[in-house]
Design a protein around this nucleic acid. Structure first.
Lengths: 105, 105
DNA sequence: TGAAATCATATCAAATCTGACATAGAATTG
DNA sequence: CAATTCTATGTCAGATTTGATATGATTTCA
């Protein structure tokens, strides 16, 4: 469907900034994408600051290195569930998540 | 498996308070469940305050009444993705979500 | 440089989640 | 009290997400 096509695009092009409206996403979809990207970035940061490899994190959450890579890349095949489980597993608290989701500052 | 059994139980018994450790959930799992329950409750509240029926909300997010009921009941078959999409669709902002996830007050 | 570790990307069968439907049980209203 | 509207719960085929695997690219470091 239409949504499927957009989903396929969701991942690409975001790596740099945090723009949200390069293709006609509804406000809710835009917010959803932004949300996932913030979690992705947070995951990458946290993992790195803990000096874990993707493989090591994967083990912690019994997943695989390739999936962790996809999480961090904002791949559309990765669910919020997985992202958040990973963040919790790496030591993030609910408050940490709240900070990631909310306005900067 | 073991996790599956727990998942099956995840939903029941939470309606009242917000206890989190009635069965041996790891801290991360407990946090994850707590998180879903908060979103469930928030959804129910928001929908009601907008005087929408479950069917009406379902239509908005092209889902079904039964699934909305499950969302609000904290049914384990409902993903975070769906919960959050529903909240966004009903007008919640990222900041609203952050408030729901973070510490009370 | 080059070997070793780490990361990115594609693919796929199995697992999970989904909307839809059926139907029963509340709640509301007349 | 119905009649009507709303909500809860079970089921299931189809869709999506998953871990695993393979393999190539990039980084690290001696």
């Amino acid at each position: 469907m239409d949504a499927a096509k957009r989903k396929r695009l969701e991942a690409a092009g975001w790596s740099v900034g945090s723009a949200t409206d390069f293709l006609k996403l509804s406000p809710e979809e835009a917010a959803f994408v932004e949300l996932k990207l913030r979690l992705s970035e947070s995951l990458k940061q946290r993992r790195r600051s803990k000096k874990l490899s993707q493989a090591a994190l994967a083990k912690k959450i019994n997943s695989s290195q390739s999936r962790v890579a996809k999480m961090e890349a904002g791949d559309p095949s990765v669910s919020l569930d997985l992202l958040i489980r990973a963040l919790l597993a790496i030591g993030a608290t609910r408050n940490d998540l709240a900070r990631v989701l909310g306005s900067r500052q």
